[in-house]
C-alpha cells in the first residue's frame, strides 16, 4: 500500500488536462442498481468530463443518490444491493472482475450528506487518516499534505492554530470542509458529493459552493443536490433524474443530461421543465 501513494509526480498535470478535455474521466454505461425487486437506477448512461462539476438533480426517491454511490462501489457494503452495467473510470470498468473496490475508492472519493469527521481524532489526524492508515508515516510529508488539503478546502486559516484539537469541536460547516479536506488528502481524481450542504446553514452553504469552483481545477466533481439554485450556481453540466409513473419499465430514470445553462434555459424534456419551473414558481 505504501507505494500506491507518492508525492513526486507533480509536473505532468498540465499536459493531462489538455488531452482530457475530449476524453471523459468517468462513464457509466447502462448502469442498473436494484434493491431486491426495487430497481432504483435504470439503464443510466452518462459521461463526466474532467475538471468539471456535474450536478445530479431530481425529486427525492429518483435514484440520484443511489446512482452516485454506485460510482465508487459504496453499494458493496449493502447486502441487498445489486449493480449491473459498467462504470468506466480511466478506461477501466470498476466493476470488472479482479478490481479492488478499495483501490477504486482511493481514486474516487466521497463527501456525505451529514459531516462525518472521525469522532475520536483531532483535526490533523482526520485529514491524515487516509494516508496514515495507508502506510505513510513520514512526518514532513504528512504535514505538507495536511496543510495543502486544508488550504484547498478553505479551512486552513481557521484551524491552523488548533490542528490538535478534536474535530468534533468544529462548526457544522467547518466539519464538512474538513471532510472535503480529508477526501482531498488521499489524492482522488474524482470527488462524489451527496447533498453536502443539506445539513448546513446558508452561510456555510455559500462557502462550500464557492469552494467547488476552485476545487474543480484540481479534481472532477459529481454532486447530488436537491437545491436547483445550487445546481445552477455550481455546475457545468446537469443530469435530471426522475422515477415516477411517467417513467415506463423499459425507460431509463435519467431523463435529461445537458449543459447546465442549456437545461435551465431550454429544457429538452417537458418533465424537466415542469420540475425546474415548478421549483422556481
Amino acid at each position: 500500500m505504501l507505494d500506491d501513494v507518492s508525492v513526486n509526480g507533480t509536473p505532468q498535470a498540465t499536459g493531462a488536462e489538455d488531452r482530457a478535455a475530449a476524453q471523459p474521466i468517468l462513464e457509466a454505461r447502462k448502469l442498473n442498481v436494484s434493491y431486491g425487486s426495487n430497481r432504483a437506477v435504470r439503464d443510466v448512461s452518462l459521461a463526466v468530463q474532467p475538471n468539471t462539476v456535474t450536478a445530479l438533480i431530481g425529486p427525492s426517491g429518483c435514484g440520484k443518490t443511489t446512482f452516485l454511490r454506485a460510482l465508487n462501489r459504496m453499494h458493496d457494503l449493502t447486502p441487498a444491493a445489486r449493480v449491473e452495467g459498467e462504470v468506466v473510470f480511466d478506461g477501466q470498468d470498476i466493476y470488472a472482475r479482479g478490481v479492488d473496490p478499495v483501490e477504486v475508492r482511493r481514486r474516487i472519493g466521497m463527501v456525505f450528506q451529514k459531516p462525518n469527521p472521525f469522532p475520536t481524532m483531532s483535526i490533523y489526524d482526520n485529514v491524515a487518516a487516509g494516508l496514515k492508515l495507508a502506510g505513510i508515516r513520514k512526518r514532513a510529508q504528512l504535514d505538507e499534505i495536511v496543510e495543502r488539503s486544508l488550504s484547498q478546502a478553505a479551512l486552513w486559516d481557521e484551524v491552523k492554530d488548533r490542528l490538535r484539537s478534536p474535530a468534533t469541536g468544529l462548526s457544522g460547516g467547518q466539519q464538512q470542509r474538513l471532510c472535503i479536506a480529508r477526501s482531498l488528502a488521499v489524492g482522488p481524481r474524482l470527488l462524489l458529493m451527496d447533498e453536502p450542504t443539506s445539513a448546513l446553514d446558508p452561510q456555510a452553504t455559500q462557502r462550500i459552493e464557492e469552494l467547488l469552483g476552485e476545487l474543480k481545477q484540481h479534481v472532477t466533481i459529481v454532486i447530488v443536490t436537491h437545491n436547483l439554485q445550487q445546481a445552477g450556481r455550481v455546475s457545468d453540466k446537469t443530469a435530471f433524474f426522475l422515477l415516477d409513473e411517467t417513467v415506463g419499465p423499459e425507460d431509463s430514470n435519467l431523463i435529461e443530461y445537458a449543459e447546465t445553462d442549456q437545461m435551465f434555459m431550454n429544457p429538452g424534456d417537458a418533465r424537466t421543465e415542469a420540475y425546474i419551473t415548478g421549483r422556481f414558481g
Binding site: T10, A20, G187, R189
Partner: peptide, 12 residues
C-alpha cells in the same frame, strides 16, 4: 493535488 497520487501520470 494530482501529485499525491501516482495514478495521475496516465490521466486521460
Amino acid at each position: 493535488i494530482t501529485g499525491t497520487d501516482g495514478v495521475a501520470t496516465g490521466a486521460g
